[in-house]
């Protein structure tokens, strides 16, 4: 009796450490990972709360205060329409963050599930769809985004779907490759022998094993998506003015960079800290899960 209880106790103490807690413990030990996480959280907080505390009206133009250098009133100075660059920099990531965060969830979901299914089927449909994926990836990524955005329009929800779809193509490959490692494993073979349905095998057997890979891929993909989104915005195919947006602010304020460099530095600092934060976090996150950050070039 006593031994049985003891061994039961031991199993519970071992079991109590969930994989999530273990990942968190590993992550906490990496200063780079924690710095990255902090940067991301701060950015999300700024995006969520900035409309309530920015010091100046971000849309207020002023003919008397154009191209002003930083001062107590205007922390990053003003742009050539006399608008406060600091306030606009704080607000400039709102659309970007909302669009990319939802889009990345869409990308992981559809790309991940399709990739797992293709890895499991590994037949004619797999061959056909992978050819399509290869073809999509052979089109210059910027051109692909420009065409889709030009066709679909720049409304926020359309952009979200566009980015979710386009970047999900990358996830298909990753999920399929990860699945191929498991399709010949005993647990999948026995599930097949039991006559489980494909959906059950995908959801119950494969997804839990591929999940870590998908999460790491998603966090990396997020930074590629930001790169794509802000690049389009820089080229004028993004958020419609006068809504403040980092990419477009950098593009426009470049014209006055020689006299008012802070009009460019403001949005550059904001965008860079977010992207660096995501990457520091992704790296540490991958290591905490015991995965090496995969090296494939984006899009």
């Amino acid at each position: 009796m006593t031994t049985a209880t003891q061994s039961a106790e031991i199993t519970t103490t071992v079991k109590r450490r969930s994989p999530l807690a273990e990942t968190w413990d590993n992550l906490r030990r990496s200063w780079a990972g924690m710095l990255g996480l902090t940067l991301i959280v701060v950015h999300i907080l700024i995006a969520a709360t900035s409309p309530y505390w920015v010091p100046q009206d971000p849309y207020q133009m002023s003919a008397d205060n154009r191209n002003e250098l930083p001062s107590a009133e205007h922390i990053f100075g003003t742009d050539k329409l006399g608008r406060d660059v600091f306030s606009r920099s704080m607000l400039g990531g709102r659309v970007t963050l909302v669009v990319t965060l939802i889009a990345i969830a869409i990308a992981i979901l559809w790309g991940g599930l399709l990739g797992i299914l293709l890895g499991l089927l590994n037949g004619r449909a797999d061959e056909l769809i992978m050819r399509l994926v290869d073809a999509m990836l052979s089109i210059p990524w910027l051109l692909l985004l420009l065409i889709i955005i030009s066709v679909m329009g720049t409304e926020m929800w359309v952009q979200t779907l566009t980015f979710g779809f386009t970047y999900g193509i990358l996830t298909i490959r990753v999920a399929r490759a990860a699945t191929l490692d498991f399709v010949t494993s005993e647990f999948v073979l026995s599930a097949r022998a039991r006559g489980e349905r494909k959906r059950t095998i995908v959801m119950k057997e494969l997804l839990p094993n591929v999940r870590d890979v998908l999460l790491v891929d998603g966090s990396m993909n997020w930074s590629w998506m930001l790169l794509g989104f802000t690049s389009l915005s820089f080229l004028g195919f993004g958020v419609a003015p006068p809504t403040p947006d980092w990419g477009f602010m950098i593009a426009k304020n470049r014209e006055i960079m020689a006299i008012q460099p802070w009009s460019v530095f403001g949005p550059v600092i904001m965008l860079s800290t977010l992207i660096i934060g995501i990457n520091l976090f992704s790296d540490a996150f991958a290591k905490a899960l015991g995965l090496d950050r995969s090296q494939g070039a984006p899009v």
Partner: peptide, 15 residues
């Protein structure tokens, strides 16, 4: 290298 890789080209170029 992380910064060089992931900062958008227009940011690096502008700096």
């Amino acid at each position: 290298s992380i910064m060089g890789m992931t900062l958008p080209g227009f940011v690096t170029a502008t700096i």
